[in-house]
Design a protein around this nucleic acid. Structure first.
Lengths: 140, 140
DNA sequence: TTTGAAAATTGGCCTAA
DNA sequence: TTAGGCCAATTTTCAAA
């Protein structure tokens, strides 16, 4: 990881599908250099992958909620693992602070969110409290 | 948006740089069909972009914190806009629930996180309370 | 959907630091 | 030994018809 790698990552963070040749042009270097650096970052785990950024509203997910979960300590890992299994649960973090587990949950609407949180997920053994915060706007 | 588009998105969410030809093979259709569908989703805003997924630990960001901010109502938008300006603040959401603003902040270590949160960001007019939750592990 | 040209990717091999 | 340069074969993209 030197400055050139950092610049490559910055470009890919903005535009993950940009061709290596264009990145090379932009950084005034050769395509092979860029390519080999990217491959290296991929193989050593700096780059974990690439993904598409989707606007949830436009595909019928009108509600996205950052949802914290409190659990009894013994069930903490079990709950986190269970949460990962749900399609609607897009991200799962274990954290310090108010909640031990933080998630991002996508739902069609408020009704479905409540269904997911209280009926489906709420059934997981060990959950003490659920704290959903609906995202109003993603500003960055 | 039909079922085929949904399948394409699902594939790209896993592997954002997968060539159209491969997606086509996987879905038993032609490359040009896939490409035109993707272009359409891009132009109508369903696809907002593509990005690289970086492991922050491996590039010197040892600490990532989901950080909530409480503000006085009048300064709410001002604070959110200011937060967007910081390089270390990777994501900014306005939300319902405990905090009006939720962010994701990357820092080298605890010391730097505290520096960012309390010295740099803490200076923004209107912030009443800052609630950082350090991510221990991303499980999904 | 098919087709063909242009562009990008890949792998191998080479040199230089 | 590692990063980068070069070339040729393959694959992918893209815009026609």
């Amino acid at each position: 990881m030197d400055e050139k790698d950092t610049k490559i990552l910055k470009i890919l963070m903005e535009e993950g599908r940009k061709p290596f040749t264009e990145i090379a042009k932009e950084l005034n270097t050769s395509e092979s250099s860029i390519r080999k650096r990217i491959k290296k970052m991929e193989s050593c785990g700096i780059i974990k992958g690439y993904n598409v950024i989707v606007e949830p509203n436009k595909i019928g997910y009108g509600v996205v909620a950052l949802t914290g979960f409190d659990t009894i300590p013994e069930d903490f890992l079990h709950v986190a693992n269970e949460l990962c299994k749900y399609e609607e649960v897009k991200k799962v973090y274990t954290t310090t602070g108010d909640h031990m587990i933080m998630t991002e949950i996508w739902a069609k609407d408020g009704r479905e969110l409540s269904e997911i949180i209280f009926n489906k997920i709420g059934r997981i053994e060990g959950i003490k409290k659920v704290c959903p915060a609906i995202i109003l706007e993603q500003m960055k």
